[in-house]
């Protein structure tokens, strides 16, 4: 009996200690991230970023993403749903953090498509066919081109535009900003300058609702 009590007590103490330490560590890290983001607001938005939604929207979602990232693909419709649920109130700005091998080329292609006014269509086509052109976390560029065949995008022109140094500069700036904001995983969202406390759909929804309530102030 005494032994069972001893064992149960030890197990409870260990588990409680674990959860308490986790809690303290997570809280400290969240606070640290909040402060760090607050100090680096200049890195959040750039004039060159593609955006969706009205310029006067009170809520701005900044998303750092990688077109080759599965979770980014899964979150894309969710963000569009949030925007549709609050029409005219949310604006989405996309920033690049192509962490997957070869994803930089796909970002260049997206920027080239933007010059043909086919940015969002191309992004959606690429997300829809992502499984075909991402294999073992690395991009198969020929499969990317295959996916865009017959979508109305001028592929010859895109091939030329991709090499424009101006596009490379955009990616470099975004990667530098991602580093400054300590974006290490994708997607990473900031809502009106606030980082997500932890990763998840509910957390993003809560952050957006909070921003809608306070009217962007």
């Amino acid at each position: 009996m005494k032994q069972k009590l001893l064992f149960a007590l030890a197990a409870i103490v260990l588990l409680l200690g674990f959860f308490l330490a986790s809690r303290l560590h997570t809280d400290a890290r969240q606070e640290e991230t909040r402060q760090h983001t607050a100090l680096n607001q200049a890195n959040l938005l750039r004039m060159h970023s593609p955006t969706l939604g009205p310029a006067e929207a009170s809520v701005v979602i900044v998303e750092f993403f990688d077109p080759a990232c599965e979770t980014c693909r899964d979150f894309y419709p969710f963000v569009k749903e949030l925007m549709a649920a609050h029409p005219g109130q949310i604006r989405l700005a996309l920033r690049y953090s192509p962490f997957h091998e070869g994803a930089g080329q796909v970002v260049r292609l997206l920027e080239a498509a933007r010059r043909q006014n086919r940015y969002w269509e191309t992004l959606e086509t690429l997300y829809a066919s992502q499984q075909n052109w991402v294999q073992h976390h690395s991009v198969q560029l020929d499969q990317v081109w295959a996916a865009l065949q017959g979508t109305g995008l001028d592929l010859e022109r895109a091939r030329r535009d991709m090499e424009d140094p101006a596009i490379a500069a955009i990616i470099q700036q975004d990667m530098a900003d991602a580093r400054a904001l300590r974006v290490e995983r994708t997607p990473e969202f900031f809502v009106n300058g606030q980082p997500m406390p932890s990763f998840g759909r509910q957390q993003l929804r809560a952050l957006v609702q909070e921003a809608l309530r306070t009217g962007g102030n």
Binding site: L14, L15, G17, F18, A21, S22, H25, T26
Partner: peptide
Amino acid sequence: VSTLGALFFSEV
């Protein structure tokens, strides 16, 4: 203690 410690380093 070792298991929880390892989990703390990786998960927390």
